[in-house]
Design a binder for these strands. Structure first.
Length: 955
RNA sequence: GCCGGAGUGGCGGAAUUGGCAGACGCGGCGGAUUCAAAAUCCGCUUCUGGAAACAGAGUGGGGGUUCGAGUCCCCCCUCCGGCACCA
């Protein structure tokens, strides 16, 4: 006899999967209408489950992509069955460096390669059966989409941060309001004191009246407040990529993309004043349900530290320099021990000195230091430095101390200058020892402290006049008060976070909606001219260079336009203007895509207000979003800070996308454009899918196809006969262990693929792909199929009377799957399904039982579930049915087996009626013959009985 | 160096609150079915000793708390991830 005709095999899986995918599409089963649209059910609560949208590379989907997508798909399908309106969208993050690099490699225009890649990604995602509402699909390269990205940029450009507003937490406000306040005299007119691109002289200038101000001075003042501004800053310049990069994009001194060396370079660039939001970005991490590791990473990246800014008068300051040196310190208590000062090579004092002559030694040092790449800086931490020849006065004791220039002080942090206190700081100690600077201890170290080391701990102040005897904390406060009284310094909070460098000199990105007039002043283009379409460039290859050469500059016809054409209001219509030639970085589009999903076709707004409120406002008590919407605005006691209910994606964006998106979102919130202060209420990172490889004795790795397994767990390298050990490693071409999703789909089908990825282990863990183990999931689906369907006839197998024991197991399985699904423990949910199917194998379920089984597995294996549902005669689509639910009373047994331990070791198991309390359990146990035998003639010292759990006898 | 996470059979992993360690899957072994194989079904599978009953050991190592520890506390080792001259 041949194979049973109606067996579930991979050919059959492929057939039903594509068939049901067509049916779902035809019937619009994945469509989720918005409020106000036909078919929208306002009585249901909402659930917004989001994936980090993929970067469509030419290589197609990686097995890592479906891991997160399957997780969200299971949850979305489950929530839909449980009675939620579910928003589960997908799109493509298609601007940016990788796409452009790929285009350069292949010689095909990025517009073409990314569109091809998107089509391929979409095909693969649809083949996996994910229930995305494809009507909401978007790509960041769509003109309709990036027009709104540009619109948001203009919102930031036309806003400022008012530190006094928002209950002293600060709030973004329209720049027009600031101008109004300047004009009516309610706000002192001065350059933004927080603006790092202005020196202290500019910042200390004040202006009497707005009317009296020149246009240039007005610009100087206003532009210093904008959240998007052009600043001359020391930036990360990557010659190989031909572009500047954000701090977040530089890892160990190399570019995050490509791993090319990065240099420090002063450049005029578009920046975002993200530092203004540092405090709120930090505080609000407490309002979201995010993985601890990611919260820690953002906290450290923002890097709040409190201390004081202290002013040291310079005794021999060069011309063109303010005459004082300001430093930031977290240890103002150690001021009496500040025996020298250090400025960074990029410090303005150094520029002034070199302009006024300066020593050759200083000039050489500064040039060398400035040309060192970050990698070189990190390779050698040996302290170097030269004397500037300038001296400063220690405000605490009046000592004249030398000012050094050394690259261990960073230009980008604090004021780019420090007071060096070698006795209380390891780095200063090292430098002082190398250059013979005096060391004065101002904190008494404990007796066992190494004499040859700095002491950074707590202890009584010494050699510090009025501070002597005080602990570090008290001494800090007293010193700050002392400095403030004398105008020599003040309390100061400093952040490690730098402003976000937002312009790139590359081609494949959103153009800035900005033009420059003949005088070089920037103007926003008219909103009605958006989207500003990226011109088609034939030659988009960057030139490796030490200087920025924005590629769009080549589009000369596009660059040169008129104020009228660009919609600039405050210039004559025919005034010639030049478009900004820089482009936005890849992060721009991903900063707000989740908002566009809520209302992707809206032509009037970046997202409709009603749609945004419905999908983003989440009540804290789990009540319906409709109720949240009745308030209209965010209400912190009733609603969650974050909008997206669950966001799943990789952990690699912890301080990139996940920080940038929070910043944009907060600005939009402040401006009243969105309803919640945070974008993502709950965040989850899926682990990486690795693969096996084999390690030789010397630690080197051998490719999978060069190794064979001789016996269980013993691996031999075929060529040499040497034993090797199985290890996990990242998938790589050289190790021949890369898994191609298309191959897995062809061999096993989508349901098996989905199930296997969810069964490998906990979602958050990184785990190796085991090609052999996939078969186990395929066999499980076969058993599931066989429990419901007669393989010979293809008809439904059914018992006349439902098996009572199986009914009980079914309820337990449903309860377990429901609980595990909600806490994203998909691996154990699947284990429960397998257990049930194994128990039912060889027995018969009633049609009703089979239907419930089918619905419970349907979020996990939707295609086979749909096929079973239809064969069982179910109404409509399985995926649109209600969740079966379970009966609590079916979860308890009449009798339970309880282990009896002696000193914690299980000796016998006794069966007792369920629900006995501790005393009754003890009585029952002691009456048991086996327990009596166990005790024998020993004295029973103590009995611990835990109802329903165990009994422990202490003999 | 600092911060975060982890370490459980041959492998992936389970144990939700301190209460039966190893669920479930892979692999392995044995059996049924078959002319035979594949497929399927049934059984066994932490280690050591033992034919078995059973005994002992056992969650990276060492110590502790507890009637009872994979779970809590202290010390140490290893691996993964992040940060790394941030004053």
């Amino acid at each position: 006899m041949s194979e049973p005709e109606h067996r579930y095999d991979s050919t059959f899986a492929g057939e039903i999967e594509t068939r049901w995918q067509s049916v779902w599409a035809e019937r619009g089963a994945f469509d989720q209408p918005n409020p106000g649209e036909p078919g929208f059910d306002a009585s249901k609560p909402k659930y917004f489950v989001l994936d980090m949208f993929p970067y469509p590379s030419g290589a197609g989907l990686h097995v890592g992509h479906p891991e997160g997508y399957t997780a969200t798909d299971i949850l979305g399908r489950y929530k839909k069955m449980a009675g939620f309106n579910v928003l589960h969208p997908m799109g493509f993050d298609a601007f940016g460096l990788p796409a452009e690099q790929y285009a350069i490699q292949t010689g095909v225009h990025p517009a073409k390669t990314t569109r091809t890649a998107i089509d391929n990604f979409r095909r693969q995602l649809q083949r996996l059966g994910f229930a995305f509402d494809w009507r909401r699909e978007l790509a960041t390269i769509d003109e309709d989409y990036y027009g709104w990205t540009q619109w948001i940029f203009l919102k930031l450009y036309n806003s400022w941060f008012d530190p006094q507003a928002g209950e002293a937490r600060g709030r973004g406000r329209p720049i027009d309001e600031l101008i109004k306040e300047f004009a009516n005299g309610s706000r002192p007119i001065r350059v933004n004191p927080e603006a790092s691109e202005h020196d202290s002289d500019t910042k200390s200038r004040t202006f009497a009246s707005w009317e009296g101000l020149s246009t240039a001075d007005r610009r100087l003042v206003i532009d210093s407040y904008r959240l998007a501004y052009i600043g001359e800053q020391t930036v990360n310049w990557c010659p190989k990529l031909g572009t500047a990069l954000a701090n977040e994009e530089v890892i160990d001194g190399k570019s995050e993309r490509g791993g090319f060396p990065v240099f420090r370079k002063p450049l005029r660039q578009w920046m975002f004043r993200i530092t203004a939001y540092a405090g709120r970005l930090l505080d609000d991490l407490g309002e979201v349900e995010w993985p601890e590791s990611t919260r820690v990473q953002q906290t450290e990246w923002i890097g709040r530290s409190t201390g004081a800014e202290v002013r040291f008068e310079l005794v021999d300051a060069p011309a063109g320099c303010s005459g004082a040196l300001e430093v930031f310190t977290t240890r103002p208590d150690t001021l009496f021990g500040a025996t020298y000062m250090v400025v960074a090579p990029e410090h303005p004092l150094v520029d002034a000195l070199l302009e006024a002559g300066g020593s050759d030694e200083l000039r050489n040092y500064v040039l060398t230091a400035r040309n060192r790449s970050d990698v070189e800086r990190q390779e050698s931490k040996k302290k170097t430095g030269v004397l500037t020849g300038v001296h400063a006065i220690n405000p605490a004791n009046g000592d004249r101390v030398p000012v050094w220039c050394a690259d261990y002080v960073l230009a980008g942090y604090g004021t780019g200058a420090i007071m060096a206190v070698p006795a209380q700081d390891d780095r200063d100690w090292e430098f002082a020892k190398a250059f013979g600077m005096p060391i004065v201890r101002t904190v008494q170290p404990p007796a066992d402290h190494d004499e040859e080391k700095a002491f950074t701990g707590d202890g009584p102040a010494i050699n510090s006049a009025f501070l002597n005897g005080l602990g570090v904390a008290d001494a800090k406060s007293k010193m700050i008060a002392w400095l403030e009284e004398r105008g020599k310094g003040e309390r100061k909070v400093n952040y490690r976070l730098r402003d976000w460098l937002f312009s790139r000199q590359r081609y494949w990105g959103e153009p800035f909606p900005i033009v420059f007039d003949a005088d070089g002043h920037h103007h926003p283009i008219g909103e009605h001219t958006l989207p500003l379409v990226l011109p088609d460039l034939v030659d988009y290859e960057p030139v490796e260079s030490q200087d920025p050469q924005p590629l769009l500059a080549k589009a000369t016809d596009w660059i040169a336009t008129t104020a009228g054409e660009a919609g600039v209001k405050d210039l004559p219509v025919d005034a010639p203007v030049r478009r900004e030639a820089n482009t936005m970085p890849g992060w721009a589009g991903s900063c707000w895509y989740y908002l566009r999903y809520c209302d992707p076709k809206n032509g009037d707004r970046f997202v409709g207000r009603d749609a945004e409120r419905y999908w983003m406002l989440t009540p804290k008590d789990g009540a319906s979003a409709k109720r949240a919407n009745e308030f209209g605005t965010f209400e912190p006691t009733l609603m969650k800070a974050g909008g997206v209910d669950l966001y799943i994606g990789g952990a690699e964006h912890a301080v990139l996308h996940l920080l940038y998106a929070r910043f944009w979102h907060k600005v939009l919130f402040d401006l009243g454009e969105v309803s919640t202060p945070e974008p993502f209420a709950k965040l989850f990172h899926q682990g990486m899918i690795t693969s096996f490889a084999y390690q030789r004795k010397d630690g080197s790795l051998a490719a999978v196809d060069t190794v064979e397994e001789r016996e269980e767990g013993v691996f031999i390298e075929t060529a040499t006969g040497d034993p090797v050990t199985q290890v996990t490693a990242k998938m790589s071409k050289s190790l021949k262990n890369v898994i191609n999703p298309d191959d897995v789909l062809a061999e096993h089908g989508a349901d098996t693929f989905r199930l296997y990825e969810m069964y490998m282990g906990p979602l958050e863990a990184s785990k190796p792909w085991d090609t052999r183990a996939i078969g186990g999931m395929h066999r499980f689906i076969q058993r599931l199929w066989r429990v419901v369907i007669d393989e010979e006839t293809g008809g439904v197998r059914s018992a006349d009377t439902p098996d009572g024991e199986l009914e009980k197991l079914l309820h337990r399985m449903i309860a377990k799957v429901q609980g595990d699904t909600e806490r994203l423990a998909f691996n154990t949910a699947i284990a429960a399904m397998i257990e049930f199917v194994n128990a039912a194998t060889g027995k018969s379920l009633s049609v009703d039982q089979s239907k419930r089984l089918t619905l419970v597995v349907s979020p996990y294996v939707p295609h086979v579930a749909e096929e079973l549902w239809s064969r069982l005669g179910g109404e409509g689509l399985a995926m649109l049915q209600g969740w079966p639910g379970f009966d609590e009373s079916m979860l308890v047994d009449d009798e339970v087996e309880v282990p009896v331990q002696v000193k914690g070791k299980v000796k016998v198991r006794i069966t007792v009626p369920a629900g006995l309390d501790a005393a009754a359990l003890e009585t029952a146990a002691l009456a048991h013959d086996e327990v009596k035998a166990l005790i024998g003639d020993q004295t029973l010292r103590k009995v611990v009985a835990v109802p329903g759990r165990m009994i422990n006898l202490v003999l």
